[in-house]
Amino acid sequence: MANKASKSLARQNSATLNRTHLTTLCIHLIFILYRLLFRRGSIIKYILLSLPSLLIEFYLERLGRPVYRGTEMIKPGEDLAAKGLTEYLWDIVYSTWIVLGLVAVVGEWAWWAGLVVPAYAAYLAWGLYKGFMGGQMPGMPQMGGAEGQEQQGEKSKRQAKMEGRGDRGGKVRYR
């Protein structure tokens, strides 16, 4: 059972990518057929607003698809269920599916719903920018002026007791 984790990751990635590609293909085909048969709309909007999702899907394919040489696995691919950027990329793919469904059902004005993800990304980027410009790292607790100095100057009872005994930070003394 050598490389059991790698084999399991490769199986999961392959299944996820195959399911995603099939779902994307079905959604886009249904959207195009529905638009041709029942509603007319802008093909330019469809291409421009679907292209980022398709490019992200291509990137996830390159990132997560296992690489084989014959029957030997060379690389299992990156974890497609990872937190962080990969998670945001999946959110873009899913939101594009939702927007395509909305546009097909309710009409052209639903393309505006596709701006939710970029607007949220801009909001996060603005918060990050403000955090760096304000001298405060994002995600860190903010220490107010006088409060922060008071909290830093105070010692706990345990620290005072250890210093009273002569213990300087719990350092190991060698003989």
Score class of each variant (00 low, 15 high):
Thr16Met: 12
Thr24Lys: 05
Trp97Asn: 05
Val117Cys: 06
Arg69Phe: 12
Trp112Ala: 15
Glu147Ala: 09
Trp97Lys: 02
Gly170Ile: 01
Trp97Arg: 01
Arg35His: 15
Trp111Arg: 10
Arg11Val: 04
Arg39Glu: 12
Tyr59Pro: 08
Thr16Glu: 04
Lys7Ala: 00
Val93Met: 04
Met1Ala: 14
Glu147Gln: 03
Thr96Ile: 03
Asp79Tyr: 13
Ser14Pro: 03
Gly114Thr: 00
Arg168Asn: 07
Met133Asn: 13
Thr16Phe: 11
Leu51Gln: 06
Ala110Arg: 06
Leu29Asn: 10
Leu36Cys: 02
Met162Ala: 13
Leu128Met: 12
Gly101Glu: 02
Pro66Arg: 11
Ile27Cys: 06
Ile27Ser: 08
Gly164Met: 12
Ser8Arg: 11
His21Leu: 08
Gly164Pro: 00
Gly127Leu: 07
Lys75Ala: 09
Glu72Asn: 02
Trp109Leu: 14
Tyr34Pro: 00
Thr20Gly: 01
Leu80Val: 02
Leu128Arg: 12
Ala81Lys: 11
Leu29Ser: 14
Ala15Ser: 11
Ala2Cys: 06
Ile98His: 03
Arg158His: 04
Leu17Gln: 00
Gly145Met: 10
Tyr174Leu: 14
Glu163Thr: 13
Glu147Gly: 09
Val105Leu: 12
Ile74Ala: 13
Gly164Ile: 00
Leu55Trp: 08
Val93Trp: 02
Leu124Asn: 05
Leu115Val: 08
Tyr120Phe: 14
